[in-house]
Amino acid sequence: MFDKIKSNFNTQTWVLIPIAIAINIAIGQIVGLLKLPVFLDSIGTVLVAALCGPWAGALTGTLSNLIWGVTMDPNALPWWPVAFMIGYMAGRMAEWGFFKSWWKIVVTGFVIAITAAIVSTPISVYLYGGITSSGSSFITAYLMQTGTDMVAAVFSTNFLVEPVDKIITAMLAFSIILGLPKRIVGGYPKSEQAQVEGGNTQQQLYIAVGVIVVLILLAIFVISKITGG
């Protein structure tokens, strides 16, 4: 276990993490400035997770959240376990070979989103009684008013909001890795995880779009189950 954690960290990892955190925060702010309906504040975290491993990803996410919390938006502080799990899960997915082509990236993004939805639910419920200061709480409130119980309402809301954000996040992180010179990528502990598999990228993108559609249908089905039952 300890050796496994250690294997995520070489000097380049330690240098990359602060930069990745700064990328998280800077992109988060630019996206806010452009008033886009997503957060995209974990691109750096996913990048570290893919290149260095799950523990490095988890550390990046956690520190990113804590530093964002204490310097910019204190409301973010209690959500650090979500950031931890986003980094960890992204790293695990990369280990399992899901960081090598566009459609796999979409699956990775989706799995990260589910993880984030699951982890943020108890925080939202116990700390905030389901209603946080995030705009998506409108949906939660609506579901609660219509009689859905709190946990289900919170989870469904997260489930609605997270996938789009996290799939785009994973795809952007992937395209950053593709855009970097191979020599530079090669210096990180798990760089081979993020190497592209053969195949036409155009074709891969079509498959990716197909996967997104399937996942959306699945999501609609699951949510209707939760809120209906």
Binding site: W14, V15, I19, I23, I30, L34, L36, I43, L180, I184
Partner: peptide, 28 residues
């Protein structure tokens, strides 16, 4: 606005990622 994201984020991200190697050498 979505299209503007690339030109804004690209230079920022790539510039700093290319520096990682030298910074690692310097502290090593």
């Amino acid at each position: 606005r979505a299209g503007a994201l690339g030109p804004l984020v690209g230079p920022l991200v790539f510039g700093s990622l290319v520096e990682v190697e030298e910074r690692a050498i310097a502290i090593e």
